[in-house]
Amino acid sequence: EINVTSHGEEQAKHWIELAKRMNLDVEVEIHGDKIIITIK
């Protein structure tokens, strides 16, 4: 399980695309200006 804290939408999209390509599950939480991505 990987937790990524992203401070930008572009960076977040990059991680989500990467996870989808690798067929991994992704959870995205938004806390103000921080985007927390959990890849399982």
Rank of each mutant, 00 (worst) to 15 (best):
W15N: 02
V28T: 01
K20C: 13
W15E: 03
E9Q: 09
D25Q: 12
V26W: 06
N23C: 09
I16H: 02
Q11F: 14
E1L: 11
A12E: 06
E10G: 06
I39S: 01
K40C: 12
Q11N: 08
I39F: 12
K34C: 15
D33E: 08
N23L: 14
S6Q: 05
E10N: 07
K13N: 07
N23M: 13
E10M: 09
E17K: 15
I2A: 08
I2W: 11
G8K: 06
G32E: 08
H31L: 09
V4R: 05
I30S: 01
I36T: 05
A19C: 15
E29I: 11
E29Q: 10
D25G: 05
E27K: 12
K13I: 07
I39R: 01
E29R: 10
S6V: 15
E29H: 09
I36K: 02
N3Y: 12
A19Y: 15
A19M: 14
L24V: 04
T5N: 09
V4A: 06
E9D: 10
E17P: 14
M22V: 03
T38K: 09
H7M: 11
M22A: 02
I37R: 00
V4Q: 07
H7R: 10
E1V: 12
L24A: 02
Q11H: 07
L24Y: 07
T38Q: 02
E10Q: 10
K34L: 12
K13V: 05
I37F: 06
M22D: 01
L18D: 02
V26E: 00
I36Q: 02
S6H: 09
W15V: 03
K34I: 12
K20Y: 15
I37W: 02
G32D: 09
K13W: 14
N3F: 12
E9A: 11
I2D: 05
V28M: 03
H14N: 05
L24W: 13
I16F: 11
T38Y: 13
S6D: 05
A12M: 12
D33Q: 07
L18M: 08
H14I: 14
T38A: 02
Q11L: 13
H7F: 12
I35Q: 01
E1S: 11
I37E: 00
E27Q: 11
A12D: 06
T38R: 13
T38V: 06
E9V: 12
H31T: 09
E1G: 09
S6G: 06
I37N: 00
E27H: 12
V4Y: 06
Q11S: 10
I30Q: 02
A19P: 06
V26S: 01
A19H: 08
G32V: 09
K40M: 05
K40E: 02
W15Y: 03
R21E: 06
Q11V: 08
H7D: 06
D25H: 13
N23A: 11
H14G: 04
Q11I: 11
L24K: 01
I39Q: 01
I30Y: 07
I35W: 13
T5M: 08
H14D: 04
N23D: 03
H31R: 11
E10L: 08
E17W: 15
R21M: 10
E1A: 10
A12R: 06
S6E: 08
K40G: 02
E1I: 12
E17S: 13
E10S: 09
I16D: 03
I36H: 02
N3A: 07
A19F: 15
K34Q: 06
E17V: 15
D33N: 10
R21P: 07
S6W: 11
Q11T: 10
V26K: 00
G8R: 09
E10V: 07
H14Y: 15
I30P: 01
R21S: 05
E10I: 09
V26Y: 08
G8H: 10
D25V: 14
E17R: 15
A12N: 09
T5I: 12
G32I: 07
E9P: 10
V28P: 00
I36A: 01
G8Y: 13
I37P: 00
L18K: 04
T5Y: 06
V28A: 01
K40I: 04
K34A: 06
H31F: 11
A12P: 05
E27M: 10
E17T: 14
T5Q: 07
E1P: 11
M22L: 11
K34E: 04
H31K: 09
K20L: 14
K40P: 01
K34M: 11
G8Q: 10
K34Y: 14
I39H: 00
I16A: 04
K40L: 03
E9W: 15
D33T: 09
K13A: 07
I35A: 01
K20T: 05
E1N: 08
V28N: 00
K34S: 05
E27A: 07
R21W: 15
H7A: 10
A12H: 06
I36Y: 07
Q11E: 08
I30R: 05
K34W: 13
L24S: 01
I2N: 09
E9N: 08
L24D: 00
I30A: 02
K13D: 05
M22C: 15
I37T: 00
N23Q: 07
V28K: 00
D25F: 14
I2E: 05
T38M: 06
E17N: 11
L18Q: 02
N3S: 09
I30D: 01
E9C: 15
W15R: 08
N3K: 13
V28I: 10
G32C: 13
D33I: 11
I30W: 07
E9F: 14
G8P: 08
I37H: 00
K40Y: 11
T38N: 03
T5P: 06
H31Q: 08
E27Y: 11
I35M: 02
I35P: 00
G32H: 10
V4G: 06
N3E: 08
A12V: 12
I2T: 09
I35F: 04
E17F: 15
L18E: 02
I35Y: 04
L24E: 01
Q11Y: 13
W15D: 05
D25N: 10
Q11R: 09
E10D: 11
E17Y: 15
K40N: 02
K13Y: 11
H31D: 04
E17D: 04
I37Q: 00
M22W: 15
E17G: 13
N23T: 13
L24F: 09
L18V: 04
K34R: 11
D25P: 07
I37V: 04
D25Y: 15
D25L: 13
M22F: 14
V4S: 07
I39Y: 04
I35H: 01
E29M: 12
V4T: 05
R21F: 12
E27L: 11
K40V: 03
G32F: 11
A19L: 15
I36V: 06
I36S: 02
I36W: 08
K40D: 01
A12K: 07
I30H: 02
V26G: 01
H31W: 12
K20R: 12
G32W: 12
A12F: 13
I37L: 03
N3W: 14
K13L: 07
V26F: 11
H31V: 10
Q11K: 10
K34G: 03
T38I: 10
K13H: 05
H14F: 15
G32Q: 09
L18N: 02
A19R: 13
V26R: 00
A19V: 10
H31G: 03
M22R: 03
I16N: 02
A19E: 04
L24P: 00
E29D: 03
R21K: 04
T38W: 13
G8F: 15
G8L: 15
T38F: 12
E10K: 09
K40H: 03
D25W: 15
D33S: 12
V4L: 09
N23W: 15
H7P: 06
R21T: 06
L18S: 02
N23F: 14
A12L: 14
H14R: 13
H31P: 01
L24R: 01
I39C: 08
V4H: 05
Q11M: 11
R21H: 06
I36L: 05
E27N: 07
I2H: 05
K20M: 14
S6N: 08
I36F: 05
G8D: 12
N23E: 03
Q11G: 07
D33L: 12
D33H: 07
V26Q: 00
D25C: 13
E29N: 04
R21N: 03
I39L: 10
V26P: 00
G32K: 07
G32L: 12
I2K: 08
W15G: 03
G8T: 11
A12Y: 14
T38L: 08
W15S: 03
S6T: 12
G32Y: 10
M22P: 03
H14V: 13
